[in-house]
Design a protein around this nucleic acid. Sequence first.
RNA 1: GGCGGCGUACCCAAGUGGUUAAGGGAGAGGUCUGCAAAACCUUUAUCCAGCGGUUCGAAUCCGCUCGCCGCCUCCA
Length: 490
Amino acid sequence: MRVYNTLTGKKEEFISINPGKVGMYVCGITAYDVCHLGHARSAIVFDVMKRYMRYSGFEVRHVRNITDIDDKIIKRAAQEGVSTVDIAKKYTEEYYRDMDRLGVSRADVEPKATEHIPEMIEIIKGLIESGYAYSVHGDVYFRVSRFSDYGKLSRRSLDDMMAGARVEVDEKKENPLDFALWKASKPGEPWWDSPWGKGRPGWHIECTAMSMKYMKYMGESFDIHGGGADLIFPHHENEIAQSEAFTGRPFVRYWLHNGFITVDKEKMSKSLGNFFTIKEILDKYDPEVVRYFLLSTHYRSPIEFSDAQLSESEVSIDRYYSTVLRVNDFLNEPSAISHQPSAIKVVEEFEKQISSLKEKFMDAMDDDFNTALALGHIFELIREANKFLDAKPRGQKAGELVAKSKEVLTELGNILNIFNRTPHEWYISLMKVKNVGFTEGDILNEITKRHGARQKKDWALADKIRNELEEKGIILEDKKDTTKWKIKVG
RNA sequence: GGCGGCGUACCCAAGUGGUUAAGGGAGAGGUCUGCAAAACCUUUAUCCAGCGGUUCGAAUCCGCUCGCCGCCUCCA
């Protein structure tokens, strides 16, 4: 397996510290507002990495933190006239609701900052003792000039950063680039006791404390640290500085960062206000569509968000379920396997396609989690399966192959956590999302009515019924001796 | 100002030194069908922003130009 490591700027062979085991820490959210699509991308991408590594045989320990105390939470609490605890609780719940709907699995440990204050204080004390940090009027800052590797992740030097015009000068800091490990609390703000007085932790220290605590079994380094690319600087840079200054050892082996979602080519972000919340997107699209959309581009590339793109993803998934529908029909047709077997050549060709898919899929995923390519391979088999079914295959072997193809597609889909419903569940779900004014019973009634008309060769009435349903977003497809319904996509 | 990334068909998107440049959508033609839909087949980039260079050979490496974006401040 090869992964792109932000630290080295290269794709590298992935070698875990402990053979067969992977420790992965991913920065979660700050619970101060509802999540937007950008949060979904990060969560989904790292969820898929975890699923794939487990599928490949790794034992993965996944830690994802929740920041439940910070400036933005304090601000929000003040605005709403409630406590920071209430704000954090409310938005943590919202976050879990969104993630559950999107099919993002829980991490093995989901630590909260406020539950690890003593651990943070210990690290800060150690950093002060070794001269890497200093306290001023109840604040504690990290002394970046003391850490010679500062800037190695984001590839910039202290001089470069000083040259940047946007460094705020703070009287209390020795160097404007020094960052807070501990902040003295202002009146009315939440606080914890510390050797430097009442205060609260800075943002970066929680990840150092919690990753060390929950990755401890690995030693003082762990394998993967992930998050959005916007965390590279300063957050992850600062984590490296604190952690490596404290332990004197490398903090993390592989730094993985996902790219942004853009709107009109610009980064989707809170500050630009061009964001779409997960909730509002899920009002219009099935969660599987959102997942597919986010996995149809490589995780490090930007993805342009648009309704057109989501609709295309919807069409792609529909192609999958339409094929499964055909596969199921075939498997339920007993005459198919009892007949004389089909030509050996056709059968062998399909067998080859099925057996090569898994390998191609894994090759793609092994190459820095190339989900876009992996999905491309899946659709190659979809085409082959349809082609095989078009050839009206017969015989027991043909039946086994069709069943096998479905099995493989389901197995690989599970890694991405898509393609794991029945076609019927897919269409029922679309019915809700698209506000089709019909129940399934209504549709079946119409189909029965139309069936009568068709038997009488009353094509005018049959077409009228079909057209009326289509206007409601319901598609009828006539099969050999039955009629299937679907929900119109795209 | 410093650092970094991107530019592949009508649209989205893989591919980063070597047979026919994945896959999906859209378009055109065909097969199938009562007609459709779905599916399948054929077709749509002699070419990968432009120019130059390295090489037997480049979309893929190097240089320059143009365009777009990101980070340097909170941010997934």
